[in-house]
Simulated assay, not measured.
Amino acid sequence: MVGESSSVPVYPPIPVPDVPGADATARGLPRRQDLTWKQKVIVDGSAVADIGLRTAIASIVGTAMLPTIAGALLRPEDSRAERDALRFYAELGAARDPALSFPAPSEPPRVASRPANPVAEWLAHGSVHDIRFRSSFEAVNPAVRERRRGYERNNVVHAQHWRHDDGPHPTLCLIHGFMGSAYLFNGLFFSLPWFYRSGYDVLLYTLPFHGRRAEKHSPFSGYGFFADGFAGFAESMAQAVHDFRSVLDYLEYTGVDRIALTGMSLGGYTSALIAGVDDRIQAVIPNVPVVTPESQFDEWFPANLLVKLGNRIAGTDPELSSAAARYHSPLNYPPLVPKDRRLIITGLGDRLAPPEQAEALWRHWDRCAFHWFPGNHILHVSQPDYLRRMTRFLRGFMFE
């Protein structure tokens, strides 16, 4: 079945120019002079467009950071707590021990399932259920546990599961990007019906503080990721990993024995981190991932100004901040997925998650398979090309 469907043309919902990318060479990504003139035009144009997107998202992130900065200004004890948190995560990161940093769930989740809306079933042309369960996550840092327990909506995990009627199939799991949690959008953007027709079951996982997990009165999906300062972001990443491991427990309980994981942007960051924590993943494909988000804030106007202001108010040591950020970076942990089952995808015109970020992950992952396209963070030029690349990459061990 997968062999037949993989040869069928893929037509993404957003028409994009048919200017193909390619796999990286042993040296890494191509230099500008290595590109064709068409590729140069697409890369340059999409890079300019991405700067506008980056500014818009940085403004939204900055909005989420304002309460923390105001608290540090008005309450000096908040600054002390933030510095204590940085030291806590820096010590964890220095240990480079995924079992210590990201403890496994102690028991399988009690999952509730109900049929999804008719639009989801129409999109998949199959059986689709929305699942949810109570998160068993406890904050890694004891100092913030009480506050994290109080996020009632966030502590209910949500996902959408596309299943075939003839029993569990190899499953492709997708983790969305920042603010991009809508199942319909992700199903269309990543041509998930095509993978479903190819024989995969599909699971779309909702990150903490996104979609139905957003707390009441959140101004936008994903707001909570940045609303509690550095500790809040670190714990959100820890919970993203923990809750997805509970999803893996659920999939195993239902009989799934082969699981591939992909994710875009923040989802790419999360999927790369999970690949260094849990060895049950058969394949991992981070798409336009960020791997050192703290380094990107220097270019994210106006969020970069707020970060500098917050650091100045709190008296944050930049070296301590960088050390703490290693706690949740996939570059801090060796991958548990075998090299021949790692594939990284990046856009040369991406300025929100610059290709240098993906290249850093590629080097850390022993120069594994690496594919680039001449587009940006959202405009994935020649996307059908990399979707077919993903299918060829997965076929050998997902349907053996």
Results as ranks from 00 to 15, higher is better:
Val61Ile: 15
His377Arg: 09
Leu53Ser: 09
Ser7Phe: 08
Ser46Glu: 12
Leu172Ser: 05
Arg326Glu: 11
Ala94Thr: 01
Asn141Arg: 13
Met179Asp: 00
Gly167Cys: 10
Tyr151Glu: 13
Glu215Trp: 10
Gly3Tyr: 05
Glu299Lys: 11
Phe373Tyr: 15
Ala47Ser: 14
Leu320Ala: 05
Ser79Ala: 15
Ser79Asn: 05
Ser79His: 04
His380Phe: 13
Lys40Val: 09
Pro17Arg: 05
Val119Tyr: 06
Asn117Val: 11
Ser101Arg: 04
Phe230Ala: 14
Ile60Ser: 03
Asn311Pro: 00
Pro118Ile: 10
Arg363Trp: 10
Ala116Phe: 02
Ala234Phe: 14
Asp340Gln: 14
Val381Phe: 08
Ala85Ile: 10
Leu336Arg: 14
Trp162His: 02
His164Ser: 12
Phe301Lys: 05
Met179Ile: 12
Leu361Arg: 06
Arg110Ile: 12
Val202Asn: 01
Leu203Ile: 13
Ala116Ser: 15
Met237Gly: 05
Ala22Asn: 15
Glu299Cys: 03
Trp162Ile: 00
Val202Leu: 09
Asp18Thr: 07
Val48Ile: 09
Ser321Phe: 14
Leu207Asn: 08
Gln239Ala: 14
Gly52Trp: 09
Asp228Phe: 02
Tyr253Lys: 13
Leu394Ala: 09
Pro142Arg: 02
Thr206Leu: 07
Glu252Gly: 10
Ala47Tyr: 04
Val284Ser: 11
His158Asn: 14
Phe189Ala: 02
Ala26Glu: 15
Cys173Phe: 04
Ala325Gly: 13
Glu215Thr: 09
Val144Trp: 01
Phe397Tyr: 13
His129Tyr: 05
Ala159Thr: 10
Pro318Val: 08
Ala94Val: 02
Leu348Gln: 08
Tyr151Pro: 01
Ser181Tyr: 01
Ser191Arg: 11
Tyr333Gln: 09
